[in-house]
Design a protein around this nucleic acid. Structure first.
Lengths: 210, 210
DNA sequence: CGTGCTATATAGACCAGTCGTCATAATATC
DNA sequence: GATATTATGACGACTGGTCTATATAGCACG
């Protein structure tokens, strides 16, 4: 790969990592540049819109990685229950791998910049729509209308997103795993499995940088 | 009230408002000072720990206000279902009042500073524990163990927190109200009431600044 | 009431960091 | 070699958070 493509990609990767861990505003360009190894002027060359454009790219990229992870799980797990459980387990594994320092790769940036930055906001909305697409596809296997599946998918995403905040603050994966236990369509199933997962099982899926 | 107490309180109020809307790092002290009317040097007088100490106070204060709102709803609504519905309706009303510019009064700050700032992180954890206390108290009315009630309360908070993110990005209260519809202990109840609430009913409860 | 002392509050200097610009340098192409 | 395209680092205006000498307020005493 030529330097050009490396620089641009490294900038996005570093931005993803830093925005995820500490947010958008406190991730200064100098820090991003130092971590990515890209020259300063190149940043504006590749991202003429500046920091905001870089964030838009980072949100888009990180969101796509999560969507791909979700799609892989959707392929592997046929039932909504199994899928939801695997989703939560994956998020818990990432959380542990980051030593409880990183959560959702786009939430912090979105909270800081919505609606003040229309570009970042729109990128976030597209990303979330993509996630809803995948998850509602899985839920639709369990029956119900497309509208219901999308509502439910949205609530699942909300619950997982919120549980990532709690997991970081409380330094525990329990909030994440509890989502699977309490949100599954058939109340009461799998308490034992949720407890087993809390004992540190890892996943080898590629994670968004963080 | 003397100027002293006014300045300190105004600083906290302004910090709460700005942190909620745009996050911690992008809320500069100059902006907080301008909005609060407090003299610059007073900030360090009242908050010797500087910006971080101000954020800790803002998180504590905002969290307490939410806890009081939750306690009021818990008093007013006897069943877990009615409580959850009222909680979501209240959050949706605040969201609309802020024109989708503010969500949870502590989440953004926590995401930016956890675990890098132990003080803010600990304040956030205390706040969340307080919320769990109130909500699990309500849930316990519906039966089940104290442990179950706390797990469920935590998941409810997670779902609501996550739904606030989605509501902001998607500029819609639907994610918030869907939480009530999909998380209530008795699946299938109140679809009609959820739709009626989405039509703009307002609450007069005092909201955290935002 | 005036004075002196102590406690509380503040204005502004300080220095480091922020982001964006653009003339220039480097590279690619013919 | 000349020209076009791509990439870059120095610069500058501005903002960031912190600190401290100074100002102000409160209180006790004669």
């Amino acid at each position: 790969m030529a330097n050009a493509a490396i620089h641009k990609d490294n900038l996005i990767q570093s931005a993803m990592r830093l925005f995820r861990r500490q947010g958008y505003a406190s991730s200064g360009l100098q820090q991003i540049l130092a971590e990515s190894g890209a020259p300063k002027g190149s940043l504006y060359h590749y991202f003429p819109g500046g920091k905001e454009a870089l964030a838009e790219a980072a949100v888009t990229h990180a969101g796509r990685m999560v969507a791909e992870m979700l799609a892989a799980l959707a392929k592997k797990h046929r039932t909504p229950e199994a899928f939801l459980f695997a989703y939560c387990r994956q998020m818990a594994a990432w959380m542990e791998e980051s030593d409880f320092r990183s959560g959702c790769p786009i939430a912090t940036t979105l909270l800081e910049t919505t609606p003040a930055s229309p570009a970042i906001t729109a990128a976030g909305e597209r990303v979330i729509d993509g996630w809803i697409d995948v998850i509602s596809g899985v839920l639709a296997r369990g029956g119900g209308t497309s509208r219901e599946a999308r509502s439910r998918a949205q609530t699942i995403i909300a619950a997982v997103e919120g549980s990532l905040i709690l997991a970081r603050v409380r330094r525990s994966t329990k909030p994440i795993l509890d989502v699977a236990a309490l949100l599954e369509p058939k109340p009461g199933a799998r308490p034992k499995a949720a407890r087993a997962a809390a004992r540190g099982r890892r996943s080898s899926a590629q994670r968004p940088e963080g």
